[in-house]
């Protein structure tokens, strides 16, 4: 017995000794590390190739047109075509999303986290919201066509497009990002330590007071980050807009059109411009104008994502 133990100890010592002295003798950790690095290089490489390709293709347009590419409106003449109409459309859609999805989404999150009892029904709602966030965007487009377009027409805002206008588009996009707003807000509220709430209750605050002056201020940075990212999503989506009748040709409002006429008339958005240019007969559109529009879209998205990161870093709280 004792002999066995000693020889076991002996063996262990030898094993440890070998492992320490030989260092790189075992190839497996190295191989694993290499594999991980390869995965990183692959994904980063794809990104670099994609960006290089787009920027190279877009370069002639950027060089020839400069900033006027951003300030010129919709056109089928390659020399005068610009993305301004699309930027305006996307900004209006994003504004409608901010006005509709943010208040509703954040309120729903506060209710689910702070008020709703933790029972089967609440968990069902929670799971459903999470599943909704994964529904393909085209499905929301169909929802918009079936519900929001008639809704907009019904409340008298159909205009010359019969409801297939930017208002319906904005509402559809709001519905699309709503689950994401709710989820990110829930996560942000959940990350507020229970001690903060307890301290509030401890000094006699009501639930409303605790939420208003303790939970919400602490959760706000996280909520803001999430909401800015959903704005980026609303900026980049194409499919739902194509379903609910975004204009792909040319349009211009009448000279005497009011703001309401313009809002209820035809519209377009930045990613839709990329889509419709890529199928034009004139080669210049698919070859260099569409990539240039992609560059503009990417810059907008980088700015929005940058804003989200900046907000997060600035407002980050350590407990």
């Amino acid at each position: 017995m004792s002999i066995t133990t000693r020889s076991n100890k002996e063996a262990t010592r030898r094993e440890v000794d070998r492992a320490i002295r030989s260092g790189g003798g075992d190839w497996r950790p190295l191989a694993f590390q290499g594999l991980l690095l390869l995965a990183l290089i692959t994904s980063f490489g794809i990104l670099v190739v994609l960006l290089t390709d787009i920027v190279t293709n877009a370069w002639p347009t950027i060089q020839a047109r400069g900033f006027s590419f951003v300030t010129d409106g919709l056109s089928l003449n390659p020399e005068t075509a610009g993305v301004f109409t699309g930027i305006i459309g996307s900004v209006i859609i994003a504004s409608i999303v901010a006005l509709l999805a943010f208040p509703i989404g954040i309120s729903a999150a506060v209710y689910l986290e702070e008020y709703a009892p933790d029972n089967r029904r609440t968990r069902f709602v929670d799971t459903t919201v999470r599943n909704l966030a994964g529904v393909p965007s085209i499905v929301y487009g169909l929802l918009g066509l079936a519900m929001f377009v008639p809704l907009v027409r019904m409340i008298g805002l159909g205009g010359s497009t019969g409801g297939k206008n930017i208002l319906a588009a904005g509402i559809t996009m709001a519905a699309l990002v709503l689950p994401i707003v709710i989820i990110t807000s829930i996560e942000a509220i959940r990350s507020v330590p229970a001690t903060i709430r307890e301290a509030g209750f401890g000094v006699g605050a009501t639930q409303w007071e605790v939420i208003r002056s303790h939970v919400m201020p602490s959760a706000l940075p996280g909520i803001l980050t999430g909401t800015v990212l959903t704005l980026a999503r609303a900026f980049g989506e194409t499919a739902p807009l194509l379903v609910i009748g975004v204009a792909t040709g040319y349009f211009a409002p009448a000279g005497d059109a009011s703001i309401l006429d313009r809002l209820t008339g035809p519209y377009t958005a930045l990613p839709v411009i990329v889509f419709s240019w890529s199928r034009q007969t004139q080669a210049a559109f698919a070859d260099t104008l569409a990539p240039a529009a992609i560059v503009v879209l990417l810059i907008v998205l980088f700015l929005l994502n940058g804003a989200a990161i900046w907000l997060r870093n600035r407002a980050e709280k350590r407990w």
Partner: peptide, 13 residues
Amino acid sequence: RNINPEVGISVEG
């Protein structure tokens, strides 16, 4: 539209 800037036009396909 460039000749008649007051006319509202929409073209789709």
